[in-house]
Amino acid sequence: MGVSVMFDPIKEVTEQLNKLRETAETKGIDLSREIRHLELKLDRLEKDIYGNMKPWDRVQLARNPKRPTTLDYIQHLFPDFMELHGDRHGYDDAAIVSGLATFEGVPVTIIGHQRGRNTKENMKRNFGMPHPEGYRKALRFMKQAEKFNRPILTFIDTKGAYPGKAAEERGQSEAIARNLFEMATLKVPIVSVVIGEGGSGGALGIGVCDRLLMLENSTYSVISPEGAAALLWKDAKQAERAAETMKITAQDLFNLGIVDEVVGEVYGGAHVDVSLQSSLLKPVLLQHMNELLAQSTSELIQGRATKYHQIGTINE
């Protein structure tokens, strides 16, 4: 079952419905029967498709090339965003975007992985896979946020940190480790949201946080389903099975106590309507940020330590 085909009917019916509503409103014709009919049809379609969504279907959605990227959400959520560049050591990794904006009047620091939206952009963005410099750039902005007491919002969307020769030589491990270490005690709230694929240490490198949110059809995993299948069962073709066993969907991770809130997606997936998806994300993001802003620094840092301590342990 191919996802691109699978989700077309919903998009089609939604468009028809919108057109019909518009016509009814602008021309003043009574189309309520037709509208009602389409609404029922849409409802049935959605139930058919969503009732049967398997983890593997969500993996496909998370990887959909049309899926909104960090900059797409930034455009809708933070109209006054100012992008700022560079690690101050000779590089500006385009696989990480960072900058400042206000969020409902509160100055915030925004950091996210950035995939390209086409081949040319992907060359520049390295398919959203950062080099060590990307993590060091992110860390620079986190420290700056701490200095000026700004909350940090991070958008996670990467297959992983780039596995290259130069990346190893320049300390990919150290760069990620350093970020985990420094994020541990940053004195400002950190809210992270997984918007597409959360790939292992490369995701966590900007993802140590006080609240972890995930879009409904995003995934977060220690290894790709293909990689897991190859390692565990010596057969990459068993990726579909791995996607279930490894518990990588938003709902699975919520059940495991790793994710704090799952953000519902637009019917058909976030790519169907970025603007609507942003308006679904905004109140959740805002609520978590405001809750954290009400906490004292020590509560915040203690809470962060407890959050990660509790994940694998049996609560006494």
Partner: peptide, 24 residues
């Protein structure tokens, strides 16, 4: 990472780093 523990395993990277930061 321990594959069979999936994301619980990944989160141990944060858990250990946080403990080391406090020690630091």
């Amino acid at each position: 990472a321990r594959m069979q523990e999936g994301m619980v395993s990944l989160m141990q990277m944060a858990n250990t780093s946080i403990a080391l930061k406090e020690h630091d």
